[in-house]
């Protein structure tokens, strides 16, 4: 039985969802996103009834509460509203459906999102393990932080969620992109530890710079592990991006691995998209 939580949804939306998913899911309705425990649910549903800005804020708060866990956030739109999807998606929504959409389509899309994420393939782990191990190692060595790899899931789009991201383009025998994304508090903590100073001394500029250095060191130290394999790459200079929702380009037909790491009670992600130019398999 899939647990689906509806936040502050009208009876119209509630009954529409019950109709679409009723048999296989247990639906509960709560009145405010504050009380939500995202990981207890397979899906979170919101209704876009308030002003768009309020909804975007609501979505991004829920997305942050998910701590990077891939819990689908579905927004149900009113019939009349014509806000482009992108605005919701860049706030952190997984999908936006409208009440006048064909029910058959909605049912299929929701069912698709309810399927649990697949496990990585062995051949995928072959190139992900070095990234995982080095991320743990880099934070241990430079910031004396114990980081635990939690899980990986795969995405078809390269989208960034969080407050700040360090991104590095890869070229050479393999091409792709690696990006680390953190929320502000953890970023500041990590940079302070890297520099061995009090957190109060870490300002935004240090964080911007430090996140760039972090992705540089993670990808640089991982690159060595691929020497002599089709996954070997060269580094470009790191790019630092603030804010959420940015979508990055990626090589056609490549999948994006989203690796989630836990640090005490917070988390960060490393997204890896690496595609050998030569055909491997």
């Amino acid at each position: 039985m899939n647990k689906i939580v509806l936040i502050d949804c009208s009876s119209e939306v509630t009954s529409a969802l019950a109709e679409l998913l009723g048999e296989q899911c247990s639906l509960s309705n709560i009145s405010s996103e504050d009380r939500i425990v995202p990981e207890e649910n397979r899906m979170i549903v919101l209704e876009a009834d308030a002003s768009p800005d309020a909804i975007y804020l609501k979505i991004s708060r829920i997305r942050a509460a998910c701590k990077f866990k891939d819990i689908p956030i579905i927004v149900i739109k009113r019939r009349e509203d014509r806000i482009p999807l992108e605005h919701f998606l860049s706030s952190g929504a997984t999908e936006v459906l409208s009440l006048d959409a064909p029910p058959g389509a909605c049912r299929q899309i929701l069912r698709g999102h309810l399927i649990p994420n697949r496990k990585p393939l062995e051949k995928e782990m072959a190139y992900l393990v070095p990234f995982i191990e080095n991320t743990v190692q880099v934070l241990k060595t430079t910031a004396s932080l114990e980081v635990a790899f939690r899980e990986v899931y795969f995405s078809n789009t390269f989208r960034i969620f969080g407050d700040i991201s360090g991104i590095i383009g890869l070229s050479g025998e393999s091409e792709g992109t690696v990006a680390v994304t953190l929320y502000w508090r953890l970023a500041r903590n990590i940079i302070a530890r890297m520099m061995n100073v009090q957190e109060e001394r870490i300002n935004a500029e240090y964080i911007h710079d430090g996140v760039g250095e972090l992705i540089n060191v993670i990808s640089g130290s991982t690159k060595k592990r691929f020497k002599g394999t089709p996954f070997h790459f060269e580094l470009s200079l790191p790019t630092v991006v603030v804010g959420s929702g940015h979508q990055l380009g990626h090589p056609e037909g490549s999948s994006i691995a989203v690796l989630i790491f836990d640090v005490d009670d917070s988390a960060f992600v490393l997204q890896v998209c690496l595609k050998p130019k030569k055909h491997l398999i």
């Binding site: 880099v138 060595t141 430079t142 060191v217 990808s219 130290s221 060595k224 020497k227």
Partner: peptide
């Protein structure tokens, strides 16, 4: 002091006159 830590980088640096090579990440 670099994240580039493959042997050929180290060899090139030493050949060009570097006195040492420290790969990032490093501890204090």
């Amino acid at each position: 002091v670099s994240t580039e830590s493959e042997d050929e980088f180290i060899e090139r640096a030493i050949a060009a006159g570097a006195n040492g090579y420290l790969a990032k990440p490093f501890s204090a």
